[in-house]
C-alpha cells in the first residue's frame, strides 16, 4: 500500500540573497523526477537560512550540527521514491554528473551498475587543497538521493555527519515533510 503524506512545504529559499553567497542546487531534473516520484523530499537551506537556524540550535545534541553548518553556504537535499524501477535513466544521471565534471570538482567515489540503478557518486570541490563543496548521488532501483553541500567541509565534519546524524536507513523521514508525486504534477 502506498503511503502518501500530506505535505508541508520544505523548501525554504531566501529571496534576499546576495549573488555571491547564492549557490543554487545543481540538479536540473528536479521537476521531472518529482513528477515521476511517489514521494519526494526537498530541503533547501542557503547561507542566511543556515545562520538563522543555527541561532535556534541550542538544544542537547545540536552542538555538532551547529558547528557543521556554521561556515557552510548552503545545504540542498533531494530524495525521490518511486513506486517501480525504471523511473530514471542512466542518461538522467549522466546529465546531473556532467555538472561536476569541471576542474574544480573531483570524483572521490564512482560506483557504476549495469542498469544505473545502483550507481553512487561523491564529488568534492577542492580549492587550494581544501574541500569547499560536496555532491553525493545515490541511486537505487526505486530511490534516488542527492545531497549538495556548498562551503568549507572539514574531514571531522564528514565524520560527524556520518556518525552523529546516522540513524537507521529509511527512518530519517519520521517527521517527514514529504511531497507526493501528484502534488508535484499540480
Amino acid at each position: 500500500m502506498k503511503i502518501r503524506y500530506r505535505t508541508l512545504l520544505l523548501t525554504l529559499s531566501l529571496m534576499t540573497l546576495s549573488a555571491s553567497a547564492q549557490t543554487p542546487f545543481p540538479v536540473t531534473l528536479e521537476k521531472q523526477l518529482a513528477e515521476r516520484a511517489v514521494n519526494y523530499t526537498e530541503v533547501s537551506l542557503d547561507r542566511k537560512m543556515l545562520e538563522f537556524a543555527s541561532k535556534f540550535m541550542d538544544k542537547e545534541h545540536d552542538e555538532d550540527g551547529r558547528r557543521i553548518i556554521q561556515k557552510l553556504n548552503g545545504v540542498y537535499v533531494r530524495t525521490y521514491e518511486f513506486d517501480k524501477p525504471g523511473q530514471y535513466t542512466a542518461a538522467d544521471l549522466e546529465n546531473i554528473r556532467r555538472q561536476f565534471q569541471t576542474q574544480e570538482w573531483t570524483s572521490m567515489v564512482r560506483q557504476r551498475s549495469k542498469t544505473a540503478e545502483g550507481d553512487s557518486d561523491i564529488y568534492m570541490k577542492l580549492v587550494n587543497g581544501e574541500v569547499q563543496g560536496m555532491f553525493i548521488l545515490s541511486a537505487e532501483p526505486k530511490e534516488l538521493n542527492f545531497v549538495f553541500i556548498s562551503g568549507p567541509i572539514r574531514p571531522e565534519d564528514l565524520s560527524d555527519i556520518r556518525g552523529n546524524f546516522g540513524i537507521p536507513q529509511g527512518n530519517y523521514v519520521l517527521k517527514a515533510e514529504k511531497k507526493s508525486g501528484k502534488e508535484a504534477k499540480q
Binding site: T41, V43, L50, D62, I161, F165, I167, Y172, A176, E177
Partner: peptide
C-alpha cells in the same frame, strides 16, 4: 530542516 538535511546526508 537543518537536522533533517543532515540526517538525509548521513543516511
Amino acid at each position: 530542516q537543518v537536522l533533517l538535511a543532515l540526517r538525509i546526508t548521513s543516511s
